[in-house]
Write a protein that binds this DNA or RNA. Structure first.
Lengths: 344, 344
DNA sequence: CTGTTAGCGCTTTCAC
DNA sequence: GTGAAAGCGCTAACAG
């Protein structure tokens, strides 16, 4: 808030009696001038209070800012609320911090990446953003894009084999060919509603979504186990949170015939379902088996512990950031493991 | 990733056969041209794939970017790990999102705000950054600064009355003039060590720190209650986390005479202390009384629930962001309340 | 209402 | 090694 003279490269150069280029070089290209002169200039600048070339101008000129935008699936609040997202951010930030790259948070419910596109070197995109227009914009941007847990065309990406993981966890939950199964799915529709899913959208965004991959995995497992899935037994939740999970779980648990198996697309959902089951005076896994997805701490600690697909979100974040930094264009599949809990 | 022509204001103007200013005005100053022409131009731009004036150039020219940097006290990881920080971020982001302002996360362990200063409209600073150089830089920056939970000169700020709150909670914890008191303090020193504090730093940064205000409050309460505080009974923790808290709690609990009262500068610390006390086979509050600070959910839910100073961090974030948006220069003191738990 | 132009602060040839 | 000058993409003042 002090109102001293604001120095520019030009004014500093004039003050020191050297040319613009010399000052610029002192900061950016040590090899272009003698060591002594360089140190001299740098020290004089410090004394004057000139902290170096204006970064905005530099970025305009060089087309590089050392800022990357992290596009979140939902509002910024989501990032600090959801443990899986938090871990991902942790991973990303640890890598970027080391590389001296700054992180701009970008909400998945904003409507235009172009408000920031010119400021950043590119985008790391965690999960498909809530606003589908963003996907379109990310598809056509000329900036570098790395996606995690979903794909945009031929951009670099990172994630687990969701279909396989879903297949395995479903196989574990199914005990008999007579099992009644319900699926509490996450963002299977673009709608904000918690409701049953009778028909899947066939848009391109949907087809590459991890939710649909998981659904395919579940379905294949059911098929291979000769278990029938009633057409009214798949639910859509718009977000992975307790509120929506309770609504869907209640609907599922009060439907007839009552499900024996709940396949949940997140641990948050599974946890809420277990709570509802208990509230109904039923037992897990005796009366109803429940499996989750993600492997968050709370799911392991809860009673009963949730059988789930554990994926390392922090590692995912690290990999995503590394792909970005290395300007990679390939996709990385990271490993997961089945966490054998007591819920099935 | 598509490699179409990248349009600029100039090239678009040429293409459409109008002047630069007209295109610029179409985007920025609707009143400067006829509605029809405006719509015409905007539509043509869309067709061409020109998404509007380059923001970096715009920001260089106008000196405004609609990005604000959130300076965290520690690494970015801290933000998603610490529940108090998370709430603050939630509050800030909710306001900024509404105002279409983007958030750049800035780590408190970086060494130079100038890497981003030219990109942002200013700084919201949550707690004093770990790296004291940043404070110095924030002090002299010409950008707008709002601080929370600490002060930098005459910048806008938001926080509670820490001294008063500490006084009240300490008063609550003290039952007799013979009480042996230990204080588990947070960042009383600039050191990264967990250790006893025999002498307080008298730097200007320290003097305005909330930790020192809290310490003053504790001390005043002890004085008013005729309780003596031994000179070796104040600890410094570099961070509010379980790890450091355990170390300090162990030291305090094994010192002779054993403390009857633990005044903790965060709930995280109090929670860890209670755990240690239990591990020693002692009881809270019968053997040792413990009070915390912050009022996080976990502290209320734990057994025994922690008696603490509840402050609304989300509200603090909201207020901080509002101060920023409104270009306010005043300080806001927000309210707190004593949460009467079972730990004292 | 439209077009010309200076300049935001910088980097980078290119000639010296 | 150094300095002059063009231009990154844009906005705002001003003249028409």
């Amino acid at each position: 808030m002090t109102d001293k003279k604001v120095w520019t490269l030009k004014s500093v150069a004039k003050e020191l009696g050297v040319s613009n280029a010399t000052v610029s070089n002192a900061f950016n290209r040590p090899d272009q001038l003698s060591k002594n002169k360089r140190i001299d200039i740098l020290e004089s600048c410090k004394k004057l209070g000139y902290t170096g070339p204006n970064k905005a101008a530099q970025s305009l000129r060089k087309g590089q800012s050392n800022i990357v935008a992290l596009v979140l699936p939902d509002s910024l609040e989501y990032m600090v609320t959801d443990p899986v997202a938090s871990d991902f951010v942790k991973g990303v930030s640890s890598v970027l911090e080391k590389s001296k790259v700054n992180l701009l948070l970008f909400s998945g419910i904003s409507d235009n990446i172009n408000t920031v596109a010119d400021f950043v070197d590119g985008f790391i995109c965690y999960g498909s953003p809530r606003n589908p227009e963003l996907i379109e914009q990310l598809r056509v941007t000329s900036k570098k894009v790395v996606t995690a847990d979903f794909d945009i065309d031929r951009n670099a990406s990172v994630g687990i084999d969701n279909e396989k993981a879903a297949y395995e966890i479903a196989k574990l939950a199914i005990k008999s060919t007579n099992d009644e199964v319900a699926i509490l799915g996450l963002r299977l529709l673009e709608s904000d509603l918690t409701c049953r899913v009778y028909e899947l959208p066939m848009t391109s965004n949907a087809l590459c979504s991890i939710s649909h991959q998981r659904l395919n995995g579940y379905r294949q497992a059911l098929k291979d186990s000769n278990v029938n899935l009633r057409s009214d037994r798949v639910w859509n939740l718009p977000k992975s949170n307790h509120h929506f999970a309770v609504i869907a779980a209640k609907e599922a648990l009060t439907s007839t015939p009552r499900p024996d198996v709940l396949l949940c697309m997140s641990d948050i959902i599974a946890l809420a379902a277990v709570k509802e089951i208990h509230a109904m005076g039923l037992k897990v896994p005796e009366d109803i088996r429940v499996v989750g997805f993600d492997g968050i701490d709370e799911a392991l600690r809860s009673t009963p512990s949730i059988t789930t697909v554990h994926q390392n979100s922090e590692e995912k974040g690290i990999k995503a950031a590394e792909l970005f930094i290395n300007r990679a264009t390939n996709s990385v599949v990271i490993s997961y493991h089945i966490e054998h809990g007591k819920s099935c």
